[in-house]
Amino acid sequence: MTAYPEPHYAPGWDRPARRGTDGFAVASIVTALLGLGPLALGLGITGTITTRRRGTAGRGVAIAAVVLGALETVALLVGVALLGTSWLQSRPLPADVAEPRTAHAVQLVVGNCLADLPPDGDVDTVRVVPCDGPHTARVASSYAFSADAIWPGQGDADALVARSCVLTADEQAVGRVVVTWAPTEQSWDRGDRTGLCVVVTPAG
């Protein structure tokens, strides 16, 4: 009978091989660093689940991606909401509204009728009413500044719009007057390039 030597095993031979970093975890942190919040959030959640089930490394990375992805997603939603609000506040009105409504001055177009004339100074919101009902003023015409024009200063902006406003002889005969609204420096910076000529009907 032949004798064989006892086999020799290196220390740790029976330990399971360490598994690599989870692919979802890696992808989640990469997309988070790229600012792709919703995608990073989804991959990060998947990564936390797969690292637990498979025993792969990267759970901490996936959790970090979930946090970053959630923050980026919230910031994205807030930005979209602000853009949507800004668009709604600058969307032009129809020429004659069907019912009274409050609107921003930059939404006015030729034909809109106003319930009241705002006080002198910067005009933000106005009350727009149907023209077949009682109204104090009407937007008669508009003046368009060039889209690439440089801010001319408030005085020159007012003067340019005023020169474009002309009353007919009949309007002058019944005592109507014209009020000019020009962009302010603040609204100009937001892209406002339209001046308005508003004809005011005398009281009584």
Score class of each variant (00 low, 15 high):
Trp181Phe: 07
Tyr4Gly: 06
Cys131Gln: 00
Phe145Met: 04
Ala40Arg: 02
Thr21Pro: 07
Trp181Gln: 04
Ala10Leu: 14
Gly58Met: 00
Glu171Ile: 04
Ala65Ile: 04
Val66Gly: 01
Pro134Glu: 15
Ala17Gly: 15
Ala140Gln: 05
Ser90Asn: 15
Val97His: 01
Val123Ala: 09
Gly69Leu: 08
Pro92Thr: 09
Val161Thr: 11
Leu76Ile: 10
Leu41Phe: 05
Pro5Glu: 10
Val61Gln: 03
Tyr9Ile: 09
Cys131Asn: 00
Ala75Asp: 12
Val166Glu: 09
Asp96Phe: 06
Val166Thr: 11
Pro11Arg: 07
Ala17Asn: 13
Val30Pro: 00
Trp151Phe: 12
Ser141Met: 12
Asp14Ile: 02
Leu83Thr: 01
Leu39Asp: 01
Gly84Ala: 10
Gln107Asp: 09
Gly155Tyr: 15
Glu6Ile: 13
Gly23Lys: 07
Ala75Leu: 13
Phe145Ser: 03
Val109Leu: 05
Asp122Thr: 15
Pro130Met: 07
Trp181Arg: 04
Val30Thr: 07
Ala81Ser: 13
Arg138Pro: 05
Val106Asn: 08
Trp181Lys: 01
Glu171Asn: 07
Ala98Trp: 05
Ala137Asn: 09
His104Ser: 03
Gly195Asn: 04
Gly47Glu: 04
Pro94Gly: 07
Ala57Glu: 07
Glu99Val: 04
Trp181Pro: 00
Val80Gly: 00
Trp13Thr: 11
Val161Gly: 05
Thr102Asn: 08
Ala32Gly: 05
Ala3His: 14
Arg163Met: 12
Leu33Trp: 13
Thr31Gly: 04
Pro130Leu: 05
Val66Lys: 00
Leu76Pro: 03
Leu77Met: 14
Ala157Leu: 06
Val66Arg: 00
Val78Gly: 10
Arg138Gly: 08
Leu93Glu: 01
Val109Thr: 08
Arg15Ile: 06
Thr46Ser: 12
Gly204Gln: 06
Val26Lys: 13
Val174Tyr: 13
Ala157Phe: 02
Ala169Met: 14
Ala62Asn: 03
Leu88Ser: 14
Gln186Glu: 13
Val78Lys: 10
Thr125Tyr: 11
Gly20Met: 11
Trp87Arg: 06
Val179Gly: 10
Thr201Cys: 05
Asp120Glu: 15
Val177Ser: 08
Val199Ile: 10
Ala10Gln: 15
Gly79Phe: 00
Cys197Gly: 09
Val161Trp: 03
Val80Trp: 00
Arg54Trp: 06
Thr21Arg: 10
Thr21Met: 13
Ser146Val: 15
Ile63Tyr: 06
Thr73Ser: 14
Gln89Thr: 00
Gly155Phe: 15
Thr168Asp: 14
Ser146Asp: 15
Ser86Gln: 15
Val78Ile: 14
Leu41Ala: 02
Gly204Trp: 03
Gly20Gln: 12
Val139Cys: 02
Thr50Ile: 09
Cys113Ser: 03
Arg193Val: 08
Ala140Lys: 03
Ser164Pro: 03
Leu43Lys: 05
Gly155Asn: 13
Val97Met: 02
Leu77Asn: 10
Gly79Lys: 01
Arg193Phe: 05
Val126Tyr: 00
Val178Ser: 13
Val110Ala: 05
Ser146Trp: 15
Arg101Phe: 03
Ser187Leu: 06
